[in-house]
């Protein structure tokens, strides 16, 4: 509850923050503080210097442009969830943002801070992976954009250099979200039923996310995200990503391939979801709450739930 001592600097601009990062050994950026301060309070992190970027309004805000939502790194989960622009341009992103942590986490936690922390089960990691988004960073040599596939380097490791700052996130727009509402176990009493008729009316792009949250931390244990491009009840193509299984968010090409060209029936979705283990390898994460075996077995269920909700076959 009592953090170790540190030096504190408030950055007046991104450029200044970058300069400070290069200047101070063992320095960390302080944005919303929702990943860093909890670690410092338990003395599990002890940076020598904190560079407070919380006042940099240039890193805040949401803009829809060129088929992408551009989200400033300091934008909070709550701001994203409540943004009409996001709700319109990518309702899946708004929905996911509204299901992160609790009200207070959403009020303070930022998308940039969340990505920088690179927790393997982060909602943002999984969603931006399935959306094929990218992360903008700025360093001493200027700006660059890192595709999400290259962003996560391992558990709690990213491609952002020590002297770089995440300035924003780009997420492609998604025309229509599935009719579910961020299906989460324990948060609603809904259950999908084993209906095996197709969703004939489904055309266009639909996306959905399902997760199992830890009952204590509320952090996702497993998250499954899908984007299905459908035409007349048939899957044209699909993207599937999962979080909380391996050290980084992971695309599931076997599931995607199994889905492509298939009629969107509950049976076909389940069969596709069951291909997931082909994409995971052996290094599945496990802990006291959910072992690796369990995560491996349950992940297809989450993916299936997301799919069923996406195409409207889940019943509340």
């Amino acid at each position: 509850m009592y953090t170790p001592d540190f030096h504190y600097h408030k950055a007046g601009s991104v450029a200044e923050a970058v300069e400070m990062l290069g200047h101070h050994e063992d320095s960390r950026l302080l944005a919303g503080g929702h990943s860093l301060l909890p670690l410092m309070r338990l003395r599990l992190a002890r940076p020598a210097t904190l560079i407070d970027i919380g006042g940099l309004d240039e890193l805040r805000g949401i803009r829809v442009h060129d088929g992408h939502i551009h989200i400033g790194a300091l934008t909070t989960h709550g701001e994203i969830a409540r943004s009409h622009d996001v709700q319109h341009a990518n309702p899946l992103v708004a929905e996911v943002a509204g299901g992160i942590g609790d009200t207070q986490v959403r009020n303070r936690g930022t998308i940039g801070g969340n990505l920088a922390h690179a927790d393997p089960a982060s909602d943002w990691g999984t969603i931006i992976t399935v959306m094929e988004g990218s992360v903008d960073v700025q360093g001493p040599n200027g700006s660059r954009t890192i595709g999400i596939a290259d962003f996560f380097q391992g558990a709690f490791e990213t491609a952002v250099a020590d002297d770089e700052i995440i300035t924003g996130v780009r997420v492609p727009t998604l025309v229509r979200q599935g009719n579910g509402h961020g299906h989460e176990h324990g948060q609603d009493h809904g259950h999908d039923h084993g209906h095996d008729h197709g969703a004939e009316s489904i055309s266009g792009e639909v996306g959905e996310y399902a997760k199992m949250s830890h009952p204590a931390s509320f952090y996702p244990v497993i998250g499954g995200a899908v984007v299905i491009n459908a035409d007349g009840g048939r899957c044209v193509s699909a993207r599937v990503a999962v979080g909380g299984l391996v050290p980084t968010p992971r695309r599931a090409p076997s599931v995607e391939a199994a889905l492509a060209g298939q009629e969107l029936t509950a049976g076909n979705l389940e069969a596709a979801a069951n291909q997931l283990s082909n994409d995971l390898g052996d290094e599945i994460i496990g802990d006291v709450f959910a072992s690796a075996d369990y995560r491996r077995a349950i992940a297809p269920v989450e993916v299936k739930h997301a799919m069923l909700h996406a195409i409207g076959l889940a019943h509340h």
């Binding site: 509850m1 504190y8 408030k10 302080l30 503080g33 929702h34 301060l37 909890p38 309070r41 407070d52 919380g54 709550g78 009200t103 207070q104 009020n107 303070r108």
Partner: peptide, 13 residues
């Protein structure tokens, strides 16, 4: 206006 957990915020913030 927004609620926050005051244990997860430095006074300087």
């Amino acid at each position: 206006g927004a609620t926050l957990k005051s244990c997860t915020c430095l006074a300087v913030q």
